[in-house]
Design a binder for these strands. Sequence first.
DNA 1: CTGTTAGCGCTTTCAC
DNA 2: GTGAAAGCGCTAACAG
Lengths: 343, 343
Amino acid sequence: MIKLTLKDIANHFSVSISTVSKALHDSHEISDKLKNRIQEFAKENHYRPNKVALNLVNRSTKSIGVVIPDILNYFFIQVLYGVEKVANERGYSIISCVTDHSLKKETMTLEMLSSGSVDGLIISSVASERQTSKHIENVKSIVDYQIPLVMFDRVIDAIECDKVIVDDFEAGYKATKYLLETGCKTIAIITPINKTKIGRLRIGGYKRALKERDIPFDDKLITPIGAKDDLDFILSFILNDKNIDGILVLDEITTVKTMAIIKARGYHVPNDIAIIGFTNGQLSKYVTPALTMVSQHGTYIGETCAHRLIDRIEGLSSPGGFETKVVKTSLIVRESTRKIPLG
Amino acid sequence: MIKLTLKDIANHFSVSISTVSKALHDSHEISDKLKNRIQEFAKENHYRPNKVALNLVNRSTKSIGVVIPDILNYFFIQVLYGVEKVANERGYSIISCVTDHSLKKETMTLEMLSSGSVDGLIISSVASERQTSKHIENVKSIVDYQIPLVMFDRVIDAIECDKVIVDDFEAGYKATKYLLETGCKTIAIITPINKTKIGRLRIGGYKRALKERDIPFDDKLITPIGAKDDLDFILSFILNDKNIDGILVLDEITTVKTMAIIKARGYHVPNDIAIIGFTNGQLSKYVTPALTMVSQHGTYIGETCAHRLIDRIEGLSSPGGFETKVVKTSLIVRESTRKIPLG
DNA sequence: CTGTTAGCGCTTTCAC
DNA sequence: GTGAAAGCGCTAACAG
């Protein structure tokens, strides 16, 4: 069985293509008898209208592109899940692309997607990490091209579009405050996202919480860690140098690893050292002790992005008037932190 | 800046569309002077050829569809990652769709994808779980439509196409044998995938291993568990009834939960009860004790699928001649099992 | 060197 | 009721 086109059907019935098209659309212009015959024939032979041709005619693909830096990161998967869910509900499919944190890949991906393959884009941009005009240019051209765009999590300030962001400052503040309230005196930060804006915001919140208690900020306590760095080695420095009794870690996998190392070194969690990590995924709940985490509500973010974008695509939102939605985080308290003292 | 088409450029220079097309393709038929002017103009105004139009002309979209039952399952994410990786390398983008284990969604998704949106499909089919002709029909139409198809993990026997499967029988056998060798006498199975063929295969391997040691099979030891069931409640039955000292769990998250419950009930893992779980993801490594798992090499499976499919799409593989590649599993031994006795 | 034409598969006006 | 024709944006064979 080879692919059937309108033309084939038209030939088979010796009618014109437009007649077939109308018949399949159940147009009243066509006699019932012919309509029935054509429809039946189409069904029997599994006729399916060619999507690509339709896309060309309609100037719409009913699909949206989702660009994320990393697919093995549970936060982004949750977002993807949320997007998938509502996109599906609203009749769109998604083209997902991962950039592996590479600017070059991001550029290529955006170039590819912004040439008609999708009706709109949802992206967490690597370029946001170095907000230089050169890198921004690239993302900007999407907006210039009138392609609806929603940025989430890692957004670029200079670009005007709908945004869904996490209140990272407040999250850093809340987490630090909680550690302080549960008796921590010296809180270190391990950040695998040192160069990102969201990382800076979280640290900003941390500083604010310290300041409220008149604790001087010590930048020796901030430890950046790269993908290839040896966490064990790096931790040994701050563990030996400082009298640390609390750690804030800025992503989930690093949180889990950090705790494992700390435990292996004989510290008790949370009594010797309390830990709070960022982004509540599958891991944190099941490790021992279960980790207190900052939840960013990834699925909700994804859903919100998708709704915003599709509203925009379908002209359901006021033109211009871009909105930035700030999603509040929640602190999921588990066992890696001490109890809040009563009174 | 609005979308530029060849026509616009042609108008701007008062030349024909085909001249512009050729100029942009650097055809030697066009004078260098004109070529330069056109190319520069195109670049300055960010001209991008419309993908959809190209797709129509080329009858190819340079994209492949990936259909998986679940995106919050790490195995499928790994596969997706592998597919993404090689698809990208070979110039394809991927459209990913999740079916949530729903046959209806799978049908809709396949219908959508098989009408020209993608050059080929990689799918782990829900329909494989009930291999009835009615459900298979749907997947079959893809093959009938000449759309290159690779099935992985949950494949349908009746459909002729390339397949990449896990040696689930051997995996069940190996895992069981290992438990036996490390001293387990009564091994239970917890299966969240009771109705699937892969589940049956794993249990088949389990039976074989028992048989080799002349241990009678007791089907009371096989405990199916549904998505909504209360694992704690269900575990209490077998834990109380039988003198279980080994458990084989057929997916990762259930393995982790099972261990948590067992520990909470005061059993020591692995001394009282040893545990082996299926599909080695992020979780198993970091829980305490770290879990001994069967790795299915998801990323590798994804890569293999993508290569097979793209070879097929590009006519690089012999027509017909479908292959079924069986990927061997590995047992990742960690701390939830006892040591193999020496000698 | 440049332009004309046909065609990819479909929709949609407008004639007959 | 049915069909012819134009057009979506692009390519490619063929004229000029």
